[in-house]
């Protein structure tokens, strides 16, 4: 067995510096959300009053609600579409399978800003007025591929012989799916759904181009607040968003590391 070595000192210090680089801005942002001063430059003492202000900021609360609405609906749609596609891609050989598989990666290859202006142009040309619906449609467009890839990866690790056994024992395809396949792939579906939710909840660029009046999401609201400078309120709402995303990711990593945690 190979013994574990801590590595040369300079390399450890270098790695530590990179970690500091990754986390210092986030830590400073969170710290200043508790700073008892309007100005974001020096520490004046601890307060939670900015969080209280947020709570009473009706526009901000509405943006939060919009974000949750968009993320929930977009996640639902992209999970259903993505799971169906993943099932077909990993279980049945059919003509054009490679092309469909490549389609899942396409939105990841196109620069976000191009996706944004393409969808904006499309909605206007087709005569669909920008609203919260267009934001949801756009979010499904960029997240469905992630769900497909995630669920497909999960399915690739499973053999189809349980399904065959179920069929041999007289189960209809419908029964086989809900009683055998679905419970086994549920963790994969959940993990795809969580990714989709995170992507949708945090998206700024594509939402920026596809949101109509009254469809302001949290990132859009933060962006418009930034126009007036970085204030403690912006830091506070950002801290909440970071906490929310990290919570979701913690859930996701648990699903990924222990596939059995949600099975059955």
């Amino acid at each position: 067995m190979r013994e574990e070595k801590p590595g040369p000192l300079w390399l450890r210090l270098y790695a530590l510096t990179v970690y500091l680089f990754l986390y210092t801005p986030i830590v400073v942002l969170v710290l200043f959300s508790f700073n008892d001063s309007r100005r974001n430059s020096s520490w004046e003492g601890f307060t939670t009053r900015w969080y209280v202000t947020l709570w009473h900021n009706e526009l901000l609360m509405r943006a939060l609600l919009n974000s949750l609405k968009v993320a929930c609906l977009a996640t639902f749609l992209s999970t259903v579409l993505g799971t169906m596609a993943a099932l077909a891609l990993s279980r049945y050989p059919f003509r054009g399978r490679e092309a469909v598989g490549a389609l899942a990666y396409l939105p990841m290859m196109v620069p976000e800003i191009v996706m944004g202006i393409a969808l904006l142009t499309f909605f206007i040309k087709v005569g669909i007025q920008l609203s919260i619906v267009t934001v949801i449609l756009a979010h499904v467009a960029f997240s469905v591929g992630y769900v497909t890839v995630t669920v497909r990866t999960r399915l690739a690790g499973m053999k189809g012989n349980l399904e065959e056994a179920a069929a041999d024992l007289g189960a209809t395809p419908w029964q086989t799916f809900w009683l055998v396949t679905f419970p086994r792939i549920l963790p994969g579906i959940m993990s795809g759904a969580l990714l989709a939710f995170t992507l949708s909840f945090d998206d700024f660029v594509i939402t920026f181009f596809t949101a109509g009046i009254g469809a302001t999401t949290l990132p859009l609201k933060i962006y418009s607040m930034l126009k007036f400078g970085v204030t403690p309120e912006v830091n506070a709402i950002s801290t909440i968003m970071l906490g929310f995303t990290i919570g979701l990711l913690a859930l996701w990593s648990r699903l990924e590391s222990d596939p059995k945690s949600l099975g059955r």
Partner: peptide, 8 residues
């Protein structure tokens, strides 16, 4: 960090 909001 990559999965948290790029804007933030």
């Amino acid at each position: 960090p990559f999965w948290t909001s790029y804007l933030i």
